[in-house]
Amino acid sequence: MDSHTDEESIFPATGRVASVDYGTVRIGIAICDPDRILASPLEVHPAANWEKDGDYFRDLVKDERIVAFVVGLPIHCDGQESDKSRESRRFAKWLSDETDLPVRLFDERFTTAAAKSRMAGAGYTRAKKKKRVDAIAALVLLESFLEACRYHNDVAGEPVTSAATGGDGLDDE
């Protein structure tokens, strides 16, 4: 069975998508409108006990009417993955299991740098930048994902249950 095709067929064509910039300290979250035209940073959530935050994410889905998630996949400039990539894959699989929604992994290279660049002229204090940068990085991720979907006229990224990773989205090298 080709899980990639199955995942693409269930990824909804409309509705609000939330992007997640997963980090070990903070999780940045951004959302888009149901027509996927505008994206906005939503919030930053502490990452310390994410495995116990199922209620938080289920409430987020309900309150914001989210139909799918995009999780940033950190990839080195040479295309190689790292321990951080595996952590993001594990989080994405957990998020899919907890919310019962489709989750795509999408290359997040340079999202934090782009977020910092956007914030540079906004007049944020240093403390405010630190609190907000992860949500802005999630916004950059979501905008990139939506643009890639429009450009290719298809679902961008990689499904969490990719056949390339043994079907569970996790690869123990």
Rank of each mutant, 00 (worst) to 15 (best):
E64Q: 14
K52Q: 15
A39W: 10
P46F: 06
D97N: 09
D63R: 10
L73Y: 11
V160G: 08
E158L: 11
G72V: 03
A148N: 06
I31Y: 03
L42P: 07
H76T: 11
E147P: 05
R36A: 08
M1T: 14
V67R: 11
A137T: 07
V17E: 00
L101Y: 06
V70L: 13
R90E: 04
L146C: 08
L42Q: 09
S40P: 00
E158H: 08
A47H: 04
F57W: 14
R26F: 09
K116S: 05
E158M: 11
L101H: 03
T111Y: 05
L73I: 13
K128G: 06
A156H: 12
K130W: 12
D97W: 04
P102W: 09
D83A: 09
K84S: 15
D100H: 07
E98P: 06
F69Y: 09
A164Q: 07
S19W: 07
D21L: 04
R36E: 10
G15V: 02
P102I: 05
L105W: 03
R150V: 03
L73P: 06
A113C: 08
P74V: 02
G121C: 11
L73T: 14
G123M: 09
D2L: 12
G166F: 15
E98T: 14
L170W: 02
K93W: 10
L95P: 02
I37H: 05
A113V: 15
P159I: 11
R90G: 02
P34W: 13
V25E: 12
A114C: 03
D33M: 15
D55M: 02
D172P: 03
R16D: 00
K130T: 15
D154Q: 06
S82R: 14
E51R: 15
S9C: 02
C77F: 00
D168C: 02
S96I: 00
S19G: 10
G23Y: 00
D35H: 08
M1F: 12
K129L: 14
R36W: 09
H4L: 12
A48M: 08
S82Y: 10
T125D: 06
P102S: 12
H45W: 06
K84G: 12
A122C: 11
C77H: 00
D97Q: 10
W50N: 11
D53G: 15
A138Q: 12
S19V: 12
F106N: 00
A135C: 05
L141E: 03
A120P: 11
D171F: 11
G121Y: 11
A127G: 15
C32Y: 13
K52W: 07
P34H: 14
E158G: 01
D78N: 15
V17S: 01
A30Q: 04
I31R: 04
I37D: 01
Y56K: 11
R104Y: 04
G123Y: 09
T99P: 04
D6T: 07
V133F: 02
D171A: 05
D53A: 15
P159G: 14
A122W: 08
E7D: 08
K128A: 13
S3M: 09
V140N: 03
K93M: 11
C32I: 14
I31K: 02
L105I: 12
C32A: 15
P41K: 07
V140L: 04
F106K: 00
D134V: 14
A127N: 15
E87P: 01
A13N: 05
Y124A: 13
Y151T: 14
G72Q: 00
R109T: 04
V155D: 01
V20F: 03
V17I: 15
F69N: 06
R86P: 02
D6L: 08
E108N: 06
C149F: 10
